[in-house]
Amino acid sequence: MRILSKLTAAAAIFCASTLMAQAEQVKVGIAAEPYPPFSSLDASGKWVGWEIEIIDAICAEAKLDCVITPVAWDGIIPSLTSKKIDVIMSSMSITEKRKKTIDFSDKYYSDNGYTIAGPKGVTIDPTPEGLKGRILGIQVSTNAEVYASKHFKDSLAEMKTYQTQDEANQDLVAGRIDAILASPLTIDQFMKTDQGKACCEIKGKVANDPEIFAPGAGAGLRKGDTMLKEKINAAIKGIRANGKYNEITKKYFSFDIYGE
């Protein structure tokens, strides 16, 4: 009887230790639409990119078993609030409007405002007057859409929205729109492609609007999910301190993406 009790106790300790060793599983929501160099599918169907590697690094640092879960961008916040996913890590800007619905971690990179790009040889100033009568392409449900609606809508012939930035880029290449508005990071990657180099050029940054421009992109969390938020914040600090953040970033960017 005593031997059985010892065996039972040992088994209980082993099971408890095993459960403690297992990482907490977290469904990380990303936009199902490609957003290179942050996230896109490779030839084998695997999600790759700067943000995917940062997610992996944050989850490893926080000892979380993260499962990448693609969700349509315009439904990603409802997916979080309805508990279909546990966190959003998809270049989501930290804005006051979004903070009314969800919470955010500390930033893990900066947006740095917005940039206009258009065809080579065509004068387009990044102002309401410079865009007068033009067709501007923008990804739907982004801060770029909010900015354009506030500052450019009355000047434009049309503000055309797209489910993905790539669709907007392709319409610019095809001449179906006159310009695109997106983050400098996104525009920079487009301008590095063969199509971007051949057709287009950066026209300049739009004027600052502190009510719209966010301090950066952060992980979106459900209100009250304090424990997960603390783990992610600590992990962001951890990978920046141990050099992992810079190691990943250097593979994709030639400049400081984190900002001040």
Rank of each mutant, 00 (worst) to 15 (best):
residue 4 L to W: 11
residue 47 W to Q: 03
residue 78 P to L: 01
residue 224 G to P: 00
residue 207 A to D: 11
residue 131 L to H: 12
residue 156 L to T: 00
residue 9 A to G: 06
residue 121 G to M: 02
residue 32 A to S: 15
residue 151 H to Y: 14
residue 64 L to I: 11
residue 91 S to L: 13
residue 243 G to W: 09
residue 183 S to I: 08
residue 12 A to D: 03
residue 105 S to D: 02
residue 152 F to M: 04
residue 65 D to N: 05
residue 244 K to L: 13
residue 145 E to A: 06
residue 49 G to T: 04
residue 224 G to W: 15
residue 103 D to H: 10
residue 119 P to C: 14
residue 240 R to A: 10
residue 116 I to V: 14
residue 182 A to G: 11
residue 77 I to W: 07
residue 121 G to W: 02
residue 3 I to V: 09
residue 215 P to Y: 14
residue 19 L to F: 10
residue 160 K to M: 01
residue 33 E to K: 03
residue 42 D to V: 00
residue 150 K to H: 08
residue 245 Y to C: 02
residue 39 S to D: 09
residue 69 T to C: 04
residue 55 I to Q: 10
residue 238 G to M: 01
residue 234 A to R: 04
residue 143 N to P: 09
residue 180 I to L: 09
residue 93 S to Y: 08
residue 6 K to W: 11
residue 5 S to N: 10
residue 143 N to W: 06
residue 241 A to Y: 08
residue 185 L to K: 07
residue 129 E to A: 15
residue 18 T to E: 13
residue 51 E to T: 00
residue 218 G to S: 05
residue 140 V to Y: 09
residue 174 A to P: 01
residue 256 D to L: 03
residue 122 V to H: 10
residue 173 V to E: 11
residue 60 A to W: 00
residue 97 K to A: 13
residue 189 Q to D: 13
residue 221 L to G: 01
residue 36 P to L: 00
residue 194 D to E: 13
residue 85 I to T: 01
residue 86 D to F: 00
residue 42 D to T: 00
residue 159 M to E: 11
residue 130 G to S: 10
residue 195 Q to I: 01
residue 66 C to L: 09
residue 82 S to Y: 06
residue 81 T to G: 00
residue 169 N to Y: 14
residue 254 S to N: 10
residue 102 I to T: 01
residue 67 V to M: 07
residue 75 G to A: 09
residue 182 A to Y: 14
residue 42 D to N: 01
residue 139 Q to V: 05
residue 134 R to G: 07
residue 90 S to K: 06
residue 45 G to R: 11
residue 251 K to Y: 12
residue 38 F to V: 05
residue 78 P to K: 02
residue 255 F to Y: 15
residue 11 A to N: 05
residue 232 I to F: 08
residue 55 I to S: 04
residue 109 Y to C: 14
residue 83 K to A: 09
residue 224 G to Y: 13
residue 188 D to C: 05
residue 9 A to K: 07
